[in-house]
């Protein structure tokens, strides 16, 4: 198991270097520079432009800037935002809890609905239920997030007035950030109704962000389940007279879950990418919205720092999934270890 773990961690090193190069290079590939955008229509004299580029250190050779960035990373320093002048790492961790909170809810929503839906679709293969679930999953998967979000807002918030339009909590409530997780802070504040308000604000963004993972998980569960249900040991279990619930729920599901867990792990990246649009629609102050703003403002340090942090998180989650995979399925561990 240790060798398996070390090998997996070893694989992270080249990925990490690749991520630093990509995050550093990506924003610089875009035309325009932050100084020009800062000045707007007014423009800058070429002298002032050059002076500001020098001041920000953007006049140095790219490899020097990259080296600076890399050495900063190893000291836990991602530089300062060109816009807010705050350390990038502080900005990231201020906003990150909001994204995590939303992503956890979206994942719970996707798993709680996706696994049973996929499982029943497999068991009732070829029936109207199966076709409905898979058809809905396909629609969910292909739905543009922005359009879906606005549609839900107009229907549930505008017409039915069941849910709030956007934000994390009603503006009635005002309490200091303790954990950055609104639901937890609402409980800690002791203010009556705060938790309820925070939860109601989570409903629509959770549905929007969770839709694609839900569709993917449902489809993956169904196909994994179908495969497992045709295995000999399932047939044996059935012929032994075990109840259908026990055969599907205990024997088949456990094995079917292995590829599903990998899928869930991969969905973390999808969630973080989806957060960019979902957070913009719902005015959700998380890292997705922050990244979009930073890209538009060509805030180099924020973009490269933010991308690096997001990539690190996806890498760590996938490492954990890999390890879990090994735990669930001893064959993998033994084969690779």
């Amino acid at each position: 198991m240790l060798a398996f773990l070390l090998r997996r961690i070893g694989l992270l090193i080249p990925t990490f270097i690749g991520v630093t190069v990509a995050s550093f290079g990506f924003i610089r590939l875009l035309p325009g520079d932050p100084v020009l955008l800062m000045a707007g229509e007014r423009g800058l004299s070429p002298e002032r432009h050059a002076a500001l580029l020098k001041e920000f250190g953007f006049d140095r050779p790219l490899w020097v800037q990259y080296w600076d960035y890399l050495s900063g990373i190893f000291q836990g320093d991602l530089g300062f935002s060109l816009v807010t002048k705050n350390p990038v790492i502080d900005e990231f961790f201020t906003l990150f809890p909001a994204t995590v909170e939303l992503s956890i809810c979206a994942m719970i929503f996707a798993v709680a609905l996706g696994i049973p839906a996929g499982m029943f679709a497999a068991v009732k293969r070829g029936t109207a239920f199966d076709h409905t679930v898979m058809g809905t999953a396909l629609i969910g998967y292909s739905m543009p997030i922005f359009w879906w979000g606005l549609l839900l807002i107009i229907f549930f918030s505008g017409i039915l007035q069941w849910t709030p339009v956007s934000g994390r909590i009603s503006l009635l409530y005002f309490f200091p950030d303790v954990t950055g997780f609104m639901t937890i802070d609402a409980v800690l504040s002791g203010q009556k109704g705060a938790l309820r308000s925070a939860l109601s604000h989570l409903i629509l963004p959770t549905i929007v962000l969770g839709t694609i993972p839900l569709a993917v998980i449902a489809r993956q569960t169904r196909s994994a389940m179908l495969e497992v249900l045709s295995e000999d040991y399932v047939r044996t279990a059935r012929s032994k007279g075990l109840s259908a619930l026990r055969v599907v729920g205990v024997h088949a599901l456990r094995n079917a879950l292995i590829p599903v867990i990998t899928t869930i792990g991969l969905q973390v990246g999808v969630l973080l990418a989806g957060a960019i649009l979902t957070e913009t629609i719902f005015s959700w102050p998380g890292i997705g919205k922050w990244m979009v703003d930073s890209i538009f403002r060509r805030d180099y340090p924020s973009v490269q720092g933010g991308l690096l942090m997001i990539a690190l998180i996806v890498m760590i989650v996938n490492l954990i999934v890999d390890l879990l995979y090994g735990l669930i399925n001893p064959r993998i561990r033994h084969k690779e270890g």
């Binding site: 918030s157 505008g158 007035q161 709030p164 913009t280 005015s283």
Partner: peptide, 20 residues
């Protein structure tokens, strides 16, 4: 005075209508 930051124009419109 409270500034509720809402970047999307369509969402701002919905918030105004909903009384947020």
């Amino acid at each position: 005075l409270v500034f509720a930051i809402t970047t999307d124009a369509a969402v701002r419109h919905q918030r105004l209508k909903a009384g947020e």
